[in-house]
Amino acid sequence: MLLRPLDLDGVLAFVRVVDLGSFTRAAEALDTSQAAISLRLKRLEDRLGERLLDRTPRHVTTTRKGESFLPAARRLLEAHEDALSEIAGDVPARLCLGISDHVAGPNLPALLRRLGLDKAGLITEVRIAPSRDLASAFESPGEGGYDAVLLRTEEKPERGGTILAQERLGWFAAPDFPAPPLGEPLRLAGLSGPCNVRAAAARTLDAAGLPWTEVFVGGGVLAVGAAVTAGLAIAALAPSTAPPGAVEIGARLCLPELPLTWIVLRSRRLTGRPAEALRTLAAAYRGPGGR
């Protein structure tokens, strides 16, 4: 039996490292340094007398004891948040977040839940919209605007935002998707309305002189992903938003390379719980090419 209570900062560091899969991302989410996260984890492990994480230069995984401790660690943090909310009695803060459909991906709700952004003390309002609409709306003053937006763009921004990741679009389809017979157009699925990714796919195929036709136009990436999984068509997607089971078949079908894109965060000056939540979410989307 432990005679002294656990350090909540250490518990939070442990949970964030597990959820984000990285000491660096956890440090970003908690607005501290990687060295500080390592120190908190060491103190927690020393306090428990158990190693909770296995660390290599590329991967962080929970040990058997760490996996066992994780649910209790989450409950402890939730109880702490509930206690603070009861004492404060404040109206929950609100974070209005706009996310491009080609950034959100199919796992956004599960991501918000895993990161604890659904807890008391914060209402997270998420609106999914095309990147160009989000960029325009973010610039608009007044009520109903966004606190932050996550965009996907083909033009690497030099200012006016934080680059979270760099990703090349790919041609995704079901594993058994057949090559079109000679002379027949490539069957495509894409988003309805103005869509930068859809436009990039069309522009790339036209430049290569390859015939194509749209056989499915969906209202969101989830719908496009369903068409891909069903074997109906091929779609230009970022690897992070491709549906489970889909494969990149550009090389097999000798299709031209699609452009690089960047995931960019633009935000207003936030404080308190909204700022903490946004740092955590941004860290989850952080990937290669971010800066």
Results as ranks from 00 to 15, higher is better:
R279D: 05
A246P: 02
R187F: 12
L210C: 11
R74W: 09
G289M: 07
L77D: 07
R268V: 06
P178G: 14
A129G: 04
F216N: 01
A129Y: 05
P274N: 06
A235M: 12
S267R: 06
I37D: 02
P109Q: 11
P185Y: 05
V221G: 13
R268D: 01
L182S: 14
D19T: 00
L260F: 12
E257W: 10
A246V: 11
R25V: 03
E184H: 14
L205V: 12
R268K: 11
L108Y: 00
V17D: 03
S140A: 15
L95I: 00
G231Y: 15
L117S: 09
L111A: 01
A201G: 14
A26L: 08
G289W: 00
R198T: 13
A283G: 02
D176V: 12
A73Y: 02
P185Q: 01
L205Y: 14
L232E: 12
L270W: 06
L117R: 06
F177R: 13
A72M: 05
R43D: 09
I99L: 12
S267D: 00
A284T: 05
L53W: 13
R75H: 02
C96R: 14
G287I: 06
A79N: 02
P71G: 06
F216P: 01
A83N: 02
L12Q: 01
L53C: 04
G290P: 06
A208L: 07
A282P: 00
L281E: 03
A120V: 07
T280K: 03
T32A: 04
P243Q: 14
W171S: 14
L84Y: 04
K65I: 04
D206F: 09
A230C: 13
R43G: 07
I128A: 09
G190M: 14
K119A: 02
P175M: 15
L108G: 08
T24M: 12
A238L: 10
L8E: 05
L182K: 15
T261E: 01
S131A: 15
L3N: 12
A208R: 10
V247G: 14
P106R: 11
L258F: 11
T213D: 11
A135Q: 10
P180W: 15
E50S: 11
T24A: 13
E45R: 05
C254N: 14
L52D: 00
A200F: 01
G220I: 03
P239F: 03
L117P: 00
S140T: 15
G218L: 12
T280F: 07
A207M: 00
L30I: 05
S33P: 03
R152Y: 04
L115C: 04
I234A: 15
I249M: 15
L115A: 07
R266Y: 01
A223R: 09
E81D: 14
T261W: 06
L281Y: 04
Q166C: 11
E158Q: 10
A26G: 05
H80E: 00
T162Y: 02
D9S: 02
E86N: 12
D101Y: 10
A202V: 15
G218F: 09
A226W: 05
Y146G: 07
L222S: 11
S136T: 09
